[in-house]
Simulated assay, not measured.
Amino acid sequence: MAPNNQTLGNNELGAWRIFSLFMLLIQKGPLPSAEIYAAIYSDLSTDSALRTFSRDRTVLKQLGFAITEVKTGKEKSFYLSDSNFFNSSYDLSPEDANQLLVICSAILTDATFVYQEELRNALSKIVGNFYSLESGKSDSQKLSASSQNKVFPVLYESLSSKQLVNITYTNSQDLVKQKHLGVLDFFVSQRLLYFVAQDFSSGTESASIKTFRVDRVLDAAILKNESFSIPEEFDSKDYKLLDFQLGLQADTLTAFVPKNILAAFEHFSQGQGDVELLSNGALWTVTYAHEDTALSWILAHGLIPRSPESLLAKWKGSLSEVANGC
């Protein structure tokens, strides 16, 4: 059941199938098993369908959604249990939110998924509100939950429908501006939700690609009949920056990566920067916008800075404080 005849990996197929099952049951119920198998598991044999459905029920239960079965004649029917629709003990962690976004962004951009609107609304309440609450703003600066819930699905609609969106945006200098954007992707950094978009505000055809924070969007509305297309050279990895890279470039950092953490480094560096392999490790060169944040990041991940001098001095000062018990 790969969408648009795409070849998906087992994890992607599993995520697609489980979401489809959930959205099917949330719309109707109780549903006879034959109807569920025909809608979700039609590409499997009877035995495989039974086993896969059982595994999918277990996954949904672990996520807090219990599926109850009832006997209707000779056949069993299934529905989402009202008594335990969501178990509040399953708190949404930052890791959960990240995974949810990665899975859903692929589904919400696929025109064959018939529950896009329902899923966007659910995400706006679950994920959007989660990140608005996790932002580092003071209470007076935070967007209300209702505002966050309103803008999140609109931004997702721009991503999935390829229509421009008009937003009211507060930048890092607290200036409020109107922008016409085409949303290209979402990503998470330091528990904050960002989106990458083409900025058509200047009215030129060659729109620049920029990164924006979702919790800075005050209002959003789709511009009907104003569509955009993804640039051929666009690669989302170029814009899914590490937290210390977000903002105007200040300088370039070079750091030594010990050999024993190279495998982990490949994961947490997210492909950013340039890597020169050495016999005892690697040299990593990457631009940064915030020096203190970059210093905290390399300290947390066990890297040793080589340049620039200003960051190297701060690193030595941090080590000295630790050695002196400060």
Rank of each mutant, 00 (worst) to 15 (best):
Y79T: 00
K125A: 14
G64N: 04
S89R: 04
P153M: 01
K71T: 01
S81L: 01
L108G: 04
N98R: 13
N98Y: 14
K142M: 10
E95M: 14
K71G: 03
F113E: 02
F86G: 07
A97V: 14
L133N: 14
I107R: 00
L133T: 10
T112P: 03
Y131S: 07
E134L: 07
E117P: 05
Y131N: 06
I103V: 11
A106F: 09
F85H: 05
F113V: 04
K137T: 03
A106V: 04
A66T: 02
F65Q: 06
E134N: 15
S146W: 01
V102D: 13
L133P: 07
S81A: 00
L119K: 06
L143P: 07
L123Y: 03
N87Y: 13
Y156R: 05
N121I: 14
N87P: 07
Y90M: 14
L123G: 08
T72H: 02
N149L: 04
S81V: 00
N87Q: 14
Y156M: 14
E157K: 12
L164R: 15
T72M: 05
I103D: 00
Y156C: 07
L108W: 09
K74Q: 12
K137F: 15
F85T: 01
A106E: 14
K71V: 00
K71R: 09
A145W: 11
S147N: 12
Q99A: 08
Q163G: 07
Q62V: 08
F86Q: 08
Y90G: 09
L164I: 01
S146D: 10
K76I: 07
K162P: 06
Q62T: 06
K61P: 05
N121K: 14
F85I: 00
G73L: 01
N149H: 09
S124I: 12
Y115I: 07
L123T: 11
F130E: 13
Y90F: 15
S138D: 12
S158M: 05
T68L: 12
K142E: 13
S105P: 01
L159G: 08
K150N: 09
T109R: 14
D82A: 04
V127Q: 00
K162W: 05
L164P: 03
S124N: 05
G73R: 02
A145S: 13
D139V: 15
L133Y: 11
S124L: 06
I126K: 05
E157H: 07
N84Q: 10
A122V: 02
A145M: 08
D139N: 12
P94R: 02
A106D: 12
F65I: 11
E134P: 09
K61F: 02
K137S: 13
V70L: 09
S83G: 08
S144E: 05
D139T: 11
C104Q: 06
L92H: 04
S77Q: 02
G73K: 00
S132I: 08
K71Y: 01
I103M: 04
K137E: 13
L155H: 07
Q62E: 13
Q148G: 09
S132E: 14
S138K: 12
Q116A: 12
A145T: 11
V70W: 04
Q148R: 06
L119T: 05
G128V: 02
K162I: 13
L155K: 06
